[in-house]
Amino acid sequence: MASQGTKRSYEQMETDGERQNATEIRASVGKMIDGIGRFYIQMCTELKLSDYEGRLIQNSLTIERMVLSAFDERRNKYLEEHPSAGKDPKKTGGPIYKRVDRKWMRELVLYDKEEIRRIWRQANNGDDATAGLTHMMIWHSNLNDTTYQRTRALVRTGMDPRMCSLMQGSTLPRRSGAAGAAVKGVGTMVMELIRMIKRGINDRNFWRGENGRKTRSAYERMCNILKGKFQTAAQRAMMDQVRESRNPGNAEIEDLIFLARSALILRGSVAHKSCLPACVYGPAVASGYDFEKEGYSLVGIDPFKLLQNSQVYSLIRPNENPAHKSQLVWMACNSAAFEDLRVLSFIRGTKVSPRGKLSTRGVQIASNENMDAMESSTLELRSRYWAIRTRSGGNTNQQRASAGQISVQPAFSVQRNLPFDKPTIMAAFTGNTEGRTSDMRAEIIRMMEGAKPEEMSFQGRGVFELSDERAANPIVPSFDMSNEGSYFFGDNAEEYDN
C-alpha cells in the first residue's frame, strides 16, 4: 500500500510504541512475548500442572481467558453494579484439565481477579502490559475465525453469508486497541457500523446529549479505520460520505453494504499476525530463551520457528480426527482463516481442507461434555516452508469459486491468482447506482469489472525454506488448481455463540 510509510507498523501498534527502528520493534515485541511466557509459567505453578498438562491447549485457553477477564475493567465495573446470582464479580476462573488415573478430569478453578492481575503485572515488570493482553485477544479471535462461520451475524446486519472472507476479527472485544483495529476485516468494521446506525434509528437519543457526542466521535473513528483499509480513492470518498452524514440511517447502511461487497474484489488491507497460545510461549521462556534479547516478529519467520520446536497437546472428542484438529489450530496460529487453501497447503506441506470436510468441533470443551471418553493427542503445528504475512489485500483475480465463501483475504505475501467468483459478486451490483453516491458507485463498479483474471497478485513473492531466515531465496510455489480455494466452501461450520 502506498501510504505504508505514514502508518505505524503493526509491531508498533502491538507494543504501543512511538516510531521505533526494526531492532527496537523486535525487542519490544519480544518483551511482550516474554511477559506472556513468564505469566503462563507462574500460572502453571499456581495450578500445580504437570509439564504435559501445561502444554494442553484447553488449559492455555482457560488461563488466557482468566487474565483477560481480570483486566476487563468495563465488564468488571458492570458486574459490580449489576450483581447477578451466583456470579462473584471479583473472581474469575474456568475449567482446568488434569490427568488422573490414566483419565482426563475437569476441575473448575476460581481465583481472585486481583490475584491474577498481581501475577500478570509481576510477570511483566510491574506494568499492565496491555500489548500482551491484546495479543491474547487476537489469538482467540484468530481461533474463532478458523472455527466458526459468522453466517447468522452477517444475515442479521443485512449482509450476504458468502462475504465471510471479510469477517476477520469479528469476535475481537471493543477494547483491543490499535492492534485489534489493524486485524479487523472490512466486513467486521461494516458490521460494527451498521449495528451502531441501527441503534440510532431505533433509539432517538442515541446521537443526542453528552453521551451522543461520545457516540458520534466513536462512529467517526470507526469510519476512519474502515476508510484506511480501502485502497481505492472511490471507496475512500464513499467512506467520507458515510462519516460526514448528519443523521446516519438506511442510506448509510446501503452504502456500507455496497462497500463491503466491493471489497470482495477491490480488497481492503487487513493486517495478519501470528499470535500463538500462551502454552507455546511459556515452555520456550522456561527453556531459557530470551525473546527480548533475541527479538521477535509476528509477521516473519519467528512464529514458524517457534511452532517448529513446540509440543502442544489437545483434548480430542471420541469421533474427532486429531489431524483435522491440528489443521484448525495451525490455521489459527498463522492467522489464515480466509487465505486461499492452495497457498496454505503449499506452505504447510500437507493438504489443507475446507472447514466442512474437517471432523472436528471447536477447541474448547463445553462444561456439560462427558470427560470419560476424552483422549488427548499432539497437535501437528509444523510447516514445510515459511512466508511473510501481508497486510495488503493483493490485486484481484477471477477463479472458480464456491457456493460458500466467494473470495479470499490473503494472509501471506505469496504470488498467486486470487480466487473470487466474479459473476456471483457482480450480480449483486445491478441497477442500484442512484442517489448521492452514484458517481462513486459507478466508478467502483467500473474498477471491479476491469479486474483481470490473468493478473498475478504479489508478483514474484515466494515462500522460503525454514533454514532461509533472511528470506534470501524465494520459492514461487505451484498450486494444484483442481483443489478448492475457499475454506468455508459450501460450508456447515458451527455458528459462533458468545
Rank of each mutant, 00 (worst) to 15 (best):
A2P: 08
S3W: 12
T6E: 11
M13V: 07
M13Q: 14
E18P: 01
R19W: 10
A22Q: 08
A22Y: 02
A22S: 01
R26P: 07
R26C: 10
D34T: 15
I36N: 13
Q42D: 13
L49S: 01
S50W: 02
D51F: 03
V67G: 01
R74W: 10
R75N: 08
H82R: 12
P83N: 00
T92H: 08
K98C: 13
R102L: 15
E107S: 01
E114A: 01
I116M: 14
I116L: 04
R118G: 05
A123P: 06
M137D: 10
N144V: 15
D145T: 05
T147P: 13
R150I: 10
L154N: 03
T157S: 14
M159H: 06
P161F: 04
S165A: 15
S165L: 08
L166D: 13
R175M: 05
G177A: 14
G180Y: 10
V183N: 09
G187F: 08
M189R: 01
M196R: 15
G209P: 05
R213N: 10
R213Y: 10
I225D: 06
R246M: 07
G249M: 10
E254W: 12
L256I: 03
F258G: 07
S262N: 10
I265V: 15
Y281L: 09
E294G: 02
I301M: 15
P303K: 09
F304T: 15
F304M: 15
Q308L: 03
Q311V: 15
R317D: 11
H324A: 03
S335D: 14
A336S: 04
A337N: 06
V343I: 15
S345D: 02
P354S: 13
G356A: 03
A366E: 04
N368E: 15
M371F: 07
E380V: 14
S383M: 10
I388M: 15
R389K: 14
N397I: 02
Q398Y: 00
S402K: 15
S402A: 05
A403C: 00
Q409G: 00
Q409P: 03
Q409A: 00
Q415K: 08
N417A: 01
E443T: 13
K452H: 00
S457P: 13
F458E: 10
V463F: 02
D468V: 15
A472P: 06
N483L: 01
Y496P: 11
